Amino acid sequence: MGKGYRQGRIGEEIRKIISRMLLRELKDPRLSGMISITGVDVTRDNSYATCYVTILDTSGDEEKEHERQAQAIEGLESARGLIRREIGKEIKLRHVPELIFKIDRSMEYGRHIDEVIRKLEHNDE
Rank of each mutant, 00 (worst) to 15 (best):
G2V: 07
G2C: 06
G4C: 07
Y5W: 10
G11D: 03
G11C: 05
E13F: 04
I14V: 07
K16T: 07
I18Y: 02
S19N: 05
S19C: 07
R20K: 09
R20Y: 12
M21P: 04
M21S: 03
L22R: 01
L23C: 08
L23I: 14
L23D: 10
L23R: 15
R24S: 15
E25S: 11
D28Y: 15
D28A: 14
D28P: 05
D28E: 08
P29G: 03
R30S: 03
R30T: 05
L31N: 08
L31Y: 05
S32T: 13
S32R: 09
M34P: 02
I37N: 00
G39L: 04
V40G: 04
D41Y: 11
D41N: 10
V42D: 04
V42A: 06
T43A: 13
R44K: 14
R44Y: 15
R44L: 14
D45M: 04
D45S: 12
D45C: 10
N46H: 13
T50C: 04
C51I: 10
Y52I: 00
T54K: 02
I55A: 05
L56V: 12
D57V: 05
T58K: 15
S59M: 12
G60M: 03
D61G: 11
E62C: 14
E63V: 14
K64V: 11
H66S: 10
H66G: 06
Q69R: 15
A70Y: 07
Q71T: 06
A72M: 03
E74P: 00
G75H: 05
G75K: 02
S78A: 08
A79K: 00
A79H: 03
R80H: 07
G81R: 07
R85C: 09
E86Y: 09
I87W: 03
G88N: 08
K89Q: 11
I91F: 03
K92R: 15
K92L: 13
L93P: 08
V96Q: 04
V96P: 01
V96T: 08
P97V: 03
L99C: 04
K102G: 00
K102Q: 06
I103P: 00
D104Q: 01
D104C: 01
S106M: 11
S106E: 07
E108I: 04
E108D: 14
R111G: 09
H112E: 11
D114G: 13
D114T: 11
E115T: 12
V116Y: 12
H122G: 08
N123W: 10
